[in-house]
């Protein structure tokens, strides 16, 4: 169970990089919220959140190296969300 320094470095390097990216995106998201863009604010925030999710899932949850089945399951969740949102909004956006 001995571990050399190079061992530790390979353990940390990838995740640390992802973490730095996440922190950066978080800072941009927070900063942009104070710039008045009207409806643009929420769009920017959600876009950044989506990118953050992608980074988290790909590098920290390791979907990068996952079997394709696992990726399909992860996608399935998103597909069903889409179904829920689009059909529910098909009601709310067309009411009079």
């Amino acid at each position: 169970m001995s571990n050399g320094g190079s061992d530790m470095r390979s353990l940390w390097r990838g995740p640390l990089l992802a973490w730095i990216v996440l922190m950066g995106l978080f800072a941009i998201s927070l900063g942009s919220a104070y710039i008045p863009l009207g409806h643009g604010n929420v769009a920017v925030n959600l876009l950044i959140a989506a990118v953050m999710l992608a980074v988290l899932a790909t590098f920290l949850m390791d979907l990068k190296n996952a079997k394709s089945l696992v990726r399909i399951v992860a996608m399935a969740g998103l597909f069903w969300i889409m179904m829920m949102f689009s059909l529910t909004f098909s009601d709310y956006l067309t009411r009079w």
Binding site: A33, N45, L46, M52
Partner: peptide, 18 residues
Amino acid sequence: VDSVWIFLYPLIYLAGRA
């Protein structure tokens, strides 16, 4: 649990900042 927070954060805390 972390990724849920990634979406909660802008929707709740950044909603009324601008």
